[in-house]
Design a protein around this nucleic acid. Structure first.
Length: 180
DNA sequence: TGAAAGATTCGCT
DNA sequence: GCGAATCTTTCAG
């Protein structure tokens, strides 16, 4: 497996484009010699102006990471139980991003990764990584591997109550690790 | 200062 | 299929 880090210039600007782009890329967490790698197979976009997005209400202490330049991590606690991992997708000062909903385990993962709350457990991602630059040298970063291009299917987002009809969920077709 | 809702998951019916 | 778990954020009073 040839693995290389993604530079910020590799990432498309705009949360919807980024969410689509992320399908097929990999997330890497290196921690004390342990390497955990998951291939992203399902995402959802939460662009500026989206009523379902955390950034919709403006910048707050919680969602500040969504307002960082594209390629930064936004990690928050959902339902008091689950950490959810997002990648910011706009320019600095603009709030938007992509939620990563499922991974295909490639290395170091021995727990289920089909679901946004479960993949963070498997990858050992929590609040420590909120605001981390995923395009920088660090313990958590985005990469690409050599593999045939992902075949992507689009659908409505899951688990939200506003703007439910937007086709902003992306998943790799027929991948068994996609949630549900 | 209090209360309600939330980008989920798991267990039981 | 439905409700509980669990706690932070946000908004109302």
């Amino acid at each position: 497996m040839r693995l290389r880090p993604l530079a910020r210039a590799d990432l498309p600007s705009g949360s919807v484009s980024l969410a689509r782009f992320l399908i097929g890329t990999v997330l890497v967490h290196e921690d004390a010699g342990i390497q955990r790698i998951g291939r992203i197979v399902e995402t959802e976009a939460y662009p500026p102006g989206d009523q379902a997005a955390h950034a919709y209400i403006g910048k707050t202490a919680r969602n500040a990471s969504l307002f960082l330049e594209r390629g930064h991590a936004y990690v928050y606690l959902s339902y008091g139980i689950h950490w959810l991992f997002n990648v910011s997708g706009e320019g600095a000062g603009i709030g938007g991003g992509a939620l990563v909903r499922a991974l295909e385990p490639l290395a170091g993962l021995d727990r289920a990764t089909n679901g946004p709350g479960r993949l963070t457990v498997a990858m050992s991602i929590d609040r420590r990584f909120d605001g981390v630059d995923l395009c920088a040298r660090g313990p958590l970063w985005l990469g690409s591997i050599e593999r045939p291009p992902a075949r992507i299917v689009t659908s409505k987002r899951i688990g939200i109550s506003k703007a439910v009809d937007r086709p902003w969920r992306f998943a790799e077709r027929d991948n068994p690790y996609v949630s549900r």
